[in-house]
């Protein structure tokens, strides 16, 4: 059996990749994908923990997180489309009217 620490290391790595992506990428779609990656890293760690501690709370939590991530995707893409309509660009540096 694969030890749980492997899953947790993978989850931590995925989470870190997501954080780095949010920090350095300028395309808002890619930034959004990185946030989804962070959420999925958490899902992986929750399932792994659920297995170690021996109850199902973590797995149930994952379902809720998946629902929230779907709602977030719907709203996020809506906002990104609204931004694209006004700026014709997906670069976050274009959204700079507020930083004066």
């Amino acid at each position: 059996m694969i030890p749980v620490s492997f899953y947790l290391t993978l989850a931590a790595l995925m989470f870190t990749i997501g954080v780095c992506g949010v920090a350095i990428r300028r395309n808002v779609i890619v930034v959004f994908m990185c946030i989804e990656l962070m959420l999925n890293a958490v899902n992986l760690s929750m399932v792994a923990f659920s297995r170690t501690v021996g109850n199902l709370d973590g797995q149930i939590g994952v379902f809720f997180v998946m629902v929230v991530a779907a709602a977030e995707a719907a709203i996020g893409l809506g906002i990104i489309i609204a931004l694209f309509r006004s700026t014709r660009s997906l670069e976050s540096s274009e959204a700079s009217e507020l930083r004066r």
């Binding site: 989470f15 949010v22 946030i35 962070m38 959420l39 760690s45 923990f49 501690v53 709370d57 973590g58």
Partner: peptide, 15 residues
């Protein structure tokens, strides 16, 4: 971004 951090904290406390 920040709620993902909160969620990771929740997961660790659960573990």
């Amino acid at each position: 971004f920040s709620s993902a951090f909160l969620l990771f904290g929740i997961s660790i406390l659960y573990g």
